[in-house]
Design a protein around this nucleic acid. Structure first.
Lengths: 233, 233
DNA sequence: GGGAACAAAAAGTCAGACTTATATGTCACA
DNA sequence: TGTGACATATAAGTCTGACTTTTTGTTCCC
């Protein structure tokens, strides 16, 4: 899933990235390239490449005669999928999950409205297929199967919106939904009301009813937010 | 504004990044590190650092024995501020501007609603100050002054929402608004109705009226979308 | 025709020497 | 005592060349 692993510098990032995003090095901390290279037992060239990547994520800033300083959290590229994964993997997870869910609540209803206008016949078919899959996996602790169709459903909506910015949030949504199923508490079968809503959204999109699709999706996301409030008020 | 310039590898990126995002190298194109290093007259180490950054933006993929291949547009990290700037600087600009405006139309109303709940007294004051600044620069071709306050206004809203994902879209909004004023056609003074809406949003946020703040902001973004439709139907 | 051995190509890695910018401390002078 | 110019040390930045590793495509044999 989150395999940066490509090459030695990727190995370094897998270790250093999470450490920084977890706040192990508070903002303003100064690291030195040579020292890091020693610590990770890699050459300076490799270490420099890793630092460059962290710099492009705005996690650190490299300045002559000073070193590599950790930037304040407010400047991080929090939309970078890699950064999102790192933050979801650390203790900041609940806070991060809430931020992303709020983002979903803003984006997905609008995306659904656009999908109702722009979705192709194929996308409509895929959507109903996903919704039916959710229904058939909604009882009897088939959580994994349910999750699979749920993720696919929201991906299709985001893609069908025709907006590239929305489409690229598919991975984020997948991460949030997976997080809810795996890490957070999810004893019981999914809420039947939510399942019904998904089916209705699929219908609305197929019918080209943008207003209804948007409204129904808003209900879904409101539900997701309430779920968070119950778990961590 | 968009000064990557830090170091030699930054110079290379300023040249290669825009070229890739502009589609000069179609997806699947293969570049070789050594050749690029020669072309830009830099050492391989510097070139490798540049490639690493492009790779972290998912613009390219580097594989042994094959080279550096350009990835399909759909996989790019389109939320990376650097990528956004590069794309806004090329012929793709109108399309990009539309995508971002649609994103704004989804995010900003929700952000305004949250701001009404969470804004501090200081933020409220700042907001009304911005709105008043917009009013006082709304007549007599004071476009630059108007833009300044407009950008500040939306930044405060996004920050006051208390959601870090929203807050980080401040730069995007700034870029969109600046684009509208500078590059697109903007002969006349801003629409008086829009100015009034901003003042009303500031009031609603101060009053803690989330529903009203959200609704008014939605009107603002709808206006922005209509403006685009008029310019490029 | 299919599979195994082989060769070439390009990225990846490393080590070492050198350059450059810049923060900081020093000292003279006002 | 404060201030400006100057020297110095430091850490990033750059370049080069040699070497390693992985992967692809070819060739050769069964």
């Amino acid at each position: 899933m989150s395999t940066t692993g490509r090459g030695l510098h990727g190995r370094v990032l897998d270790s250093l990235g999470p450490a920084i995003t977890a706040g192990e090095y508070p903002p303003g901390s100064v690291l030195r390239t040579d020292e890091l290279a020693q610590r990770f037992d890699v050459s300076r060239s490799v270490m420099r490449e890793a630092v460059r990547v962290l710099e492009s994520m705005h996690l650190v800033e490299s300045r002559r005669r000073v070193g590599v300083t950790v930037r304040p959290k407010a400047e991080w590229n929090v939309y970078d999928p890699q950064v999102i994964r790192w933050r979801l993997a650390c203790s900041d997870r609940p806070h991060q999950l809430r931020s992303l869910t709020v983002l979903r609540s803003a984006v997905e209803p609008v995306a659904a409205g656009l999908a109702a206008k722009h979705a192709t016949a194929e996308q409509c078919a895929e959507l109903t297929e996903c919704a039916l899959g959710m229904v058939s996996h909604s009882r009897g602790h088939q959580l994994e199967g349910y999750l699979l169709h749920d993720v696919a459903f929201h991906r299709v909506i985001l893609n069908a919106s025709g907006n590239e910015m929305f489409a690229r949030l598919g991975d984020v949504v997948a991460e949030v939904l997976a997080g809810r199923t795996h890490h957070e508490v999810m004893f019981e079968d999914p809420d039947p009301a939510a399942v019904t809503l998904h089916v209705q959204v699929a219908e609305a999109v197929r019918a080209g009813d943008a207003v209804r699709a948007e409204h129904l999706t808003r209900e879904i996301t409101v539900g997701a937010l309430q779920e968070l409030d119950i778990l961590a008020p």
